[in-house]
């Protein structure tokens, strides 16, 4: 059975993005069985990554599992949506060991819960007690400004706009002066030796 007909039987739509990239959207309750059938029946054995997107407006997290074939010639993206409020996913670390650390990162950055995950502890951050930093309702700029304010301006600092204006004007004046001087010099030279214009050598 090929991939498209199998998915048709499950009433799922396989979208072909390009020669090697497919995408399929699935409900959360079908996710685990579909991933298993991708491994067992179609040889998509490698989990490349688990990605999360925060759809704040719809109140959803969109999760994407990227699977690759053993021959590394096809990638399928299995996409699913979960509620933003409850934010819970089945853990895949029993199928792919590398999923453990990916899920740990997602837990830290988005606050997604994985029931049954063995090491759901700090990953890159330590003692983080705020909203998970990659959620869109976390105001990064405000947080940064409150925690790490900018260094104060130098006391001897000058206004850049004014200074540049002054510089431009000075440049213009110098140019004008040079032009005038050159014109005056040329006029004087012409006066001194009127008809000795150098022609190009042949």
């Amino acid at each position: 059975m090929d991939l498209a007909s199998k998915l048709e039987k499950l009433s799922l739509e396989l979208v072909q993005k390009n020669d090697y990239l497919y995408k399929v959207s699935v409900k959360i309750d079908q996710l685990e069985s579909l991933l298993l059938s991708f491994i067992n029946e179609f040889n998509y054995i490698t989990l490349d990554s688990i990605n999360c997107r925060d759809d704040l407006e719809d109140g959803l997290f969109t999760i994407t599992y990227c699977l690759q074939t053993e021959a590394r010639d096809h990638i399928v993206m299995v996409q699913t949506s979960i509620e933003r409020e409850t934010a819970s996913l089945p853990t895949m670390h029993t199928i792919w060991p590398q999923a453990e650390i990916m899920e740990r990162e997602m837990h830290e950055m988005f606050g997604v819960d994985f029931p049954g995950h063995p090491t759901l502890i700090d990953f890159a951050l330590e003692y983080w007690d705020n909203i998970p930093p990659l959620r869109r309702d976390f105001d990064t700029l405000e947080y940064v400004n409150s925690m790490n304010p900018f260094r104060g301006q130098r006391t001897d600092a000058l206004d850049t706009k004014e200074e540049m204006k002054k510089k431009r004007e000075a440049k213009k004046a110098a140019k004008l002066k040079a032009e005038q001087e050159a014109a005056a010099k040329a006029a004087q030279e012409e006066q001194n030796n009127p008809k000795q214009e150098v022609s190009g050598d042949e």
Binding site: L125, V144, N148
Partner: peptide
Amino acid sequence: NGGMYWDSYNTIK
């Protein structure tokens, strides 16, 4: 002054 990480939630300035 934080350099290119000036708006990072996890880097000191």
